[in-house]
Design a protein around this nucleic acid. Structure first.
Lengths: 341, 341
DNA sequence: CTGAAAGCGCTTACAG
DNA sequence: CTGAAAGCGCTTACAG
């Protein structure tokens, strides 16, 4: 094992005190340019990379940010959000010299517990909050710990900042589009109950229908998986009163719905229009290509990371917003077929 | 800011020395059961979670494992491998009390550099090596540092262990299946040049054709994206000699190919058979459902994490294997249409 | 079985 | 501008 070289070695080699090495490398004051240059050159020559262990203990900064994903590990594969979000986060952490500490909690309770240990053990300088539920217990923890945090697509709290992409206007526009085409029986395939974004989407669906004086079509409760979408198709297409349009809370469920509808011999969009939500890449490649609302997980990740980093540096609590999600009209929507009464 | 409570506070409260607290909590020897119980009770009551900063500095263990993904951040969203792999990794790290440090390098060079800094800064106890290229410079670094590491789907080195899922037999079986159906003109849409798994898949395609004395159909070089698959369709379906089957190096390219073929009015599988590789969830929902080879990124992640953890605990270098990838025959393959000569 | 002390590798006042 | 010293919160020999 090649012995690790430490700040002491560099100081000795450069003929200065370790405090000077530290100041020189960190851009601190109290070092002449000549000394700074010499130390830098020596450190580079020796290939010294400061120990994050020593540094984090004395500086109270770990230079790492935490993300505890609350999902079943197996579900993550199909999830359209996290890869994009993490990509966005990483693109800013990279230049800031921060690392991302990722953990997965199988349930909301497990996730909250892992977050608690992560925070209490001092492993991270701040955390991202995703999959926020309506009364999320993590807010209280973070408020109490005063740990910098940013909630994604959720309100934030007294202490926790937030970064949000408006999903309501895009979904609302999609609903208006369906109604303008003549749809009157519009069903909803909802997401996992209790999550902020599930409730929000269902609420938009309901509000737009009510504002037009239209009946609330049936609601099938799903869980954001393709399988749930397929089950919803069974439930909605087998009944006596088949809706003319089905608004799904995400693309995966819409794709499952599409696939099952085809198997049942129901034509999309001729017999029933189907819409998704998220804008996953593959939505453009299913048959028919899926009309949906395009979200931007990557942009959200970028902004969230910037906000969190600012917060770690002592910045104030903020609530930010990125450009709203917009409708992408492809081919899974058409005017309703005229039917017998 | 609520003052962090430390081992000193717990020791004082329990009326013992800090070394006893440490030994009691870590299950070390030299503590009576009575003391151990009392310390545990005190620590729990005070809500003390040991500082990973202090602990990692003195123990030389950070209890974190590193993964530097070499991808463009934007590409990650469509990637079928990482979410599953990370899910598998996390399921074992969770119970082991380890964390995953994730970084993204935009290129192989950037990734190697981030890995170097990660290793040299002592931020992790071991690393996963993915997207291994044919002459990967990271092996030399890891061998030199003697940092525990496990290469995924690649050979490993003198020091680095490996965990592999056999991809050759499944792809080979798929090729045999096509040939048995009567295909003689089989093209290949290859992956990013230089990567171990790109080369491997192309090599299987070539070997099976050669062993049957069949001509090597054209090879289009792609980069594993849907767009590359679409471009390959343009190149292969527009030419004078259209192959009867196209073997793509991954599902995403196959799905792009499918989509473009449909736009060009070429029927799959009637006019041309198309196959993918990976077994992404959505391959079952495209039209026609994609025949492919099913890999198991989650199982690979689980095994890789187990191997790496064993290695961190001083275990020997190993080369392990999980169950091979198998053919999933769906509907994008059929016998070739009889054509005029 | 128990406790006082050294040490991990840095940063940060503080004194020269 | 420069350097010696304390201290961050643990673990690990070592002595009692």
């Amino acid at each position: 094992m090649p012995k690790r070289i430490s700040i002491v070695d560099v100081a000795r080699e450069a003929g200065v005190a370790i405090s000077s090495v530290s100041a020189a490398l960190n851009g601190g004051p109290g070092v002449s340019e000549a000394t700074r240059a010499r130390v830098r050159e020596t450190a580079d020559r020796m290939g010294w990379v400061p120990s994050v262990r020593g540094r984090s203990l004395s500086s109270k900064r770990t230079r790492a940010l935490g993300l505890v994903v609350q999902r079943q590990p197996g579900v993550l594969e199909a999830d359209p959000f996290f890869a994009g979000f993490i990509g966005g986060v990483e693109s800013v952490l990279e230049s800031a010299g921060y690392a991302l500490l990722l953990q997965i909690g199988r349930s909301a309770a497990a996730g909250a517990d892992r977050l608690r240990r992560l925070a209490l053990s001092g492993a991270v300088d701040g955390v991202f909050l995703t999959d926020v539920s309506v009364e999320d217990p993590r807010y209280a923890l973070l408020d109490h710990l005063q740990l910098p945090a940013v909630a994604v697509n959720a309100p934030g709290s007294v202490w926790v900042s937030s970064v949000t992409q408006d999903h309501r206007s895009g979904l609302s526009a999609l609903m208006e589009h369906l109604i303008a085409l003549g749809h009157r029986d519009i069903a909803h395939v909802a997401g996992t109950p209790g999550l902020v974004h599930s409730e929000e989407r269902e609420s938009v669906w309901r509000c737009v229908l009510e504002s037009h004086g239209l009946p609330l079509g049936p609601v099938i409760t799903g869980d954001f998986t393709t399988e749930a979408g397929a089950r919803a198709a069974d439930a909605l297409l087998g009944g006596s009163r088949v809706p003319t349009a089905v608004v799904c809370a995400n693309d995966l469920m819409a794709i499952g719905f599409l696939s099952r509808a085809k198997a049942l011999g129901v034509g999309v969009p001729d017999d029933v229009s189907v819409t998704g939500f998220d804008g996953v890449l593959l939505g453009a490649h299913v048959h028919p290509p899926l009309t949906t609302v395009m979200t931007l997980p990557g942009a959200l990740g970028t902004r969230a990371a910037e906000v969190l980093l600012a917060s770690v540096d002592g910045g104030p609590r903020v609530d930010e917003t990125i450009a709203p999600a917009v409708v992408v009209d492809r081919a899974s929507v058409a005017p309703p077929r005229v039917r017998m009464a």
